[in-house]
């Protein structure tokens, strides 16, 4: 179970409104990712669901029950913090047992659950160490272990991977996804990294300044972003935006085209430009192309073995089917 509904939930700190009234529904077993630039209120929203902050208005329902005034411990949720928030003076075993001790479960059951969680997370050999003796990834797993043993109705993750190095982050991303596959529990995950959002989510919630810009599956957001903000936020490298005469040709204020939907050529194409920086990654090459028509360089993705370098003339052909059109409000047309 883990069906969470937010009805007109709003939050302000004194005069400052962080989250204007907002409605959102999270289905049981769903992996929901809140994504947005820093300061967009995604962490605050998570803390409202956890009960660590009080809502200014609105209702939070968990499994049909009004949980707005229920204290955090009674909501049946578990949270993994950005700093892991492990108790430094307790061993890994004691850290993981702590919520069970507080719930006054009997010893045998405590032991069983801890061993089980440790086995799932490959922590068995580290049970008697202290957090200070563990690496970042291991600490992360302890924090997850502490969340799992409670058998919560939903997991809340607050930017859990942002303190890990890039290689470890990819590994933990997979582990969390696998955990979700296995447990089938609702997970709400906050991140500013759209790659994490795209790879892990069943449902992405894009937030900006406390407002929900769009809710949808990763591919929905990729294919039909509702506005310019979502279009620019989802996808890597970023979508290119062109204004002026090029946009007017398509009856729009702005047109957007993703780097992977432009075909570069050294001889012919719709647009002509000059290669600025060329990033050769092996599998892919990204060209930053300067064109006379627009101020910003246009990013183009191409295969790995393209022999074009700084200063070369380049011709670009956009895939007309994949052009996104936006009006003067930044909203999608068509």
């Amino acid at each position: 179970m883990g069906h969470i509904v937010l009805e007109n939930v709003e939050k302000s700190f004194g005069e400052v409104t962080v989250i204007p009234p907002l409605n959102l529904e999270m289905e049981d077993g769903e992996f929901v990712v809140f994504v947005g630039p820093s300061g967009c209120g995604k962490s605050t929203l998570l803390r409202l669901i956890a009960g660590l902050e009080d809502v200014t208005g609105g209702t939070i329902r968990i499994d049909g029950q009004d949980a707005t005034a229920v204290p955090p411990a009674k909501r049946g949720l578990a949270m993994v913090f950005q700093s892991y928030a492990l108790y430094p003076h307790m061993t890994v075993r004691k850290n993981i047992t702590f919520p069970l001790r507080m719930a006054k479960l009997d010893q045998a059951e405590q032991k069983r659950r801890v061993e089980q969680a440790a086995a799932v997370l490959n922590l068995t050999e580290y049970l008697d160490r202290r957090p200070g003796q563990l690496s970042g990834g291991q600490r992360q797993r302890v924090a997850i272990g502490r969340a799992i043993v409670r058998e919560p109705s939903a997991f809340l993750f607050d930017e859990p991977l942002s303190n890990l190095d890039a290689a470890l982050r990819v590994g933990m991303r997979l582990e969390i996804s696998e955990l979700h596959e296995r447990l089938k529990t609702t997970m709400i995950y906050v991140t500013h990294d759209q790659v994490e959002a795209m790879t892990m989510a069943d449902k992405i919630v894009v937030l900006q300044a406390g407002r929900i810009e769009q809710v949808g599956s990763p591919l929905e957001l990729y294919r039909t972003p509702r506005n310019r903000f979502v279009a620019g936020f989802i996808g890597s490298p970023k979508m290119n935006f062109l204004e002026g005469p090029e946009a007017r040709k398509h009856d729009a204020q702005t047109i957007g085209i993703r780097p992977e939907h432009i075909t570069p050529s050294s001889s012919e194409g719709t647009w002509k430009g000059r290669v600025g920086v060329a990033e050769h990654l092996g599998s892919d090459t990204f060209f930053h192309v300067h064109m006379e028509e627009c101020a910003e360089p246009v990013t183009v993705r191409s295969g790995g073995e393209v022999d074009m370098h700084h200063g070369d003339t380049i011709y670009l052909t956009p895939d007309v089917e994949q052009i996104h059109r936006f009006d003067d409000q930044g909203l999608r047309i068509g």
Partner: peptide, 26 residues
């Protein structure tokens, strides 16, 4: 670290237990 206290709160530790298990050892 405030997050430790919040983690304790979510883990179901009442204020006295938070004092005993988190604040006092710190």
């Amino acid at each position: 670290d405030r997050e430790q206290l919040e983690a304790g709160e979510i883990d179901g530790a009442p204020p006295l237990a938070r004092f005993r298990h988190i604040i006092l050892p710190h």
